[in-house]
Design a protein around this nucleic acid. Sequence first.
DNA 1: TTAGGGGTATTT
DNA 2: AAATACCCCTAA
Length: 850
Amino acid sequence: MSTTKEPARCTPPSASTFSFTAPFSPASALKQRRVSLALPSSPRLVPAWSFRDDSGLDSHVAETSGAMSEKKGSKMRKITADDSERDEPATSALEKKQRKKWTEEETQMLVDGCNSWGVGNWKAILKDPKLKFDNRSPVDLKDRFRTYFPDAYRQHYPNAKTHLSSRVRSTLPDGTSIFEKTRSKKRRPFTAEEDQALKAGYERHGTVWATIVKDPIFMEQNRRSTDLRDRFRNAFPELYQAAGYKPRNTPKKKKREVEPAKRAATDDQLAMSSNSAGPVRRRRAHTTQGWYRGGTKSVPESTTCSEDESSGDEEEQQAIPKSRRPGASGTIPQAEESSLSDAPAEADMDAIEPLSEPLSIPDYIGSSQSLSEMTDSSQSQAWSSAMDARPWSAGSPTSSHMSSDYLLNQSPYHRRSDGMNMIGKSAWGTQDWFSPNPRLDPSGLSSGSSSYASGGISPAPSSPFSFHNLNHGVLDRYDLFPSSFPHDFASEVGAGDSHSTFSDPEMFPSSNFSGFTHHSNYAGDLIFGARSHQPQPSSYGSGFGFGTPGLGLTGVPQSTGVHPMQLHTSSLPGIDEIELGAINLNDQVDAPHDAMEGTTSTGIQKNSSERPMGIADLNHFNLSSHSLGLLDLPDDFHTTPPATPVTTSRSLQRTSSHMHHMASTHGRSISVPPSEHRAGPSRPPQTHATSQPLPQSVPPFSPTSFPQQQVDVEQFSPSPIPQQTPYGQDIQRPPNDLYDLPFLDLHYYSSNHSALNLAAMNDTASKDDTDSSRRGQALDLAQAASSMKPVGVHHPLSLGQHITQSFASAAGKLHLSHHRGQSAISPKDLLLRKGSDNKRKRSSWDGGAS
DNA sequence: TTAGGGGTATTT
DNA sequence: AAATACCCCTAA
């Protein structure tokens, strides 16, 4: 009793501790902290229903088969005893909290929360009514995040020197982080009724979209006023112009130019970026990043950031093209201006990674622009998803640890880069501990060749949405690659939904904001400034399955049965759920989940053979199908490229990590807060603005689902690895459910055949063809995973190579973010390595293992 | 409030 | 004993 907390009194730290600590900054040093961007804080939480709680079940899976890694003990914990205690003696209670193990449920909540609110917004997460935590404090959440998702932690908190570990739980199979935020909403094409209502509304209210949007029909669709404007623009271009707006895509004019300055400009801005104000900012920022846009993000902080940025990127991308575009300059409004500046960057990009670009670009572009019509943006993550592959799930037993490296790999960026360059199978070939997955290889290779395509593709999927609307847009994008089309598409792109996306949060029904910050009520004028922050509100999963593409969490073990999918399905309403679904922790473990996840995650991609593909594929397909349909692109196209690159990244990280990062760390001047979300206003997740869209989408997921899995990958190891039979797993799983979603989505969006394909795929593994790319991805992942985890394993791959190549690009992307400029890759990244060294102390626990 | 570092209770 | 998971403290 007594002193409980005292600061550590004497406790001599283990030697280890000091040992390193710092080369530089000794303890005191300073860490930089995150700047907290802003935490917008506030996302209002929507009341959301809390279904999720199901918690009841929880229990951590206790047995679930044994897998429990950590948990096992949990049950035992004395702590439990506390429960009773808690009350009692204040003493203990007061003094210290007893240890409470985290349950999977809680962990899942955490994940969900991170996705909804952004990593680092612990409070917000804690407050989220939807999320239930067992008397945890924000710090607890943070700690859990740190300990359970060390890999993610590293990404989000590059400055952290301690607690390093290489466990990877936070990454999805695709490599994307579960925590990413993604926000994307899905696009929901305007229905005839809506168009009608829109027109009628226009006739009645003019361009006062805010008024028009009040029409129940729009409310139901969660359309934002900007969405209406965008749709109006597309659907009734003439009226739109008549109303004084600049026509967006109209082929005829490209842009109106000029006039716009007033509002038109606004419009563009709006359209272009949600962050109107931001556009400039962003752009700038991007500028640097511009080159990889795809990667985007430099994400200074976290991976997540991508979102914002991603959105921003989108803009940028758009911008880029624009900038490029010939005449654009004049016309270009503010946004463009910024973009202009970027232009150079763009060029760089091309130079650097031509291929990669496409990826992101498409997505963004497409999304942004076309979105308008659809209004949604779920794909955002597409890019990320594209990457996905679930190595571990597939089979990397070992993968359990992959972690850091893995992450790196994950990053789309990396992928891209690698893919572009090296990839090929080589990378992965080397490693594959997974060897078992033969398929992967091929793909990888293919990817190499196709990398470009694939690269482009990956994003593409996401973009698909956009495509829906703007077919041409899509094409354009693609064209872009080659370089063409600037204006048109650019213009459209500019348009933007991005903002809309953001706005969504605000829009939420529940809150009914009266005012949208951004846009003024009048047409076109969105102001927008507001949004700049918000990046991600996590996705809402829209009703469609795909909403959450990127999120799928794998890390968390639990997922027991329900999961996200269920949630969504049943509860359409909650975006969160959807997100969750995406996010769910399913740890890598479950392949099945993966499927689900995949689904959710639009991206998809990689999955490939190993993975079931199911969902993912579906999603993937969706995209592709859409796009294809529209574009006629081959599946491959969509498919993301192989992820081979992954390896690369990892290697990089690994390599030097500690040291460097330490150093860097010290320097840490940069802090990078995890702000991804934060940075932006995190949107209130709950709203789910888009959710519900399709009843269809509500497939029944069986709640039951999987028993568990625990989580830790490790345990997983033996597991079934589907390497070769990717589908198999999925299939096993309740494909129906999974598929259902996807299908639904697919259908909804576009193609039936996609569904079919999926089905086919499922059955056979044949899909390979289609997905060749996926496979590649998978491979990549595999590599990553492989290397990562096993302690010993190294992926020989190529640090050097990757590093070199990717370094610039990839490194820059990810890590750079932090430092942004400072160290290139930042040692931090490198940290990953397995571990051992770093800091030690903590390292060990982190998993350092070694 | 959070990031980041440290400590300790537990588990392996 | 090492590793781990959870808790705390403190600087910013």
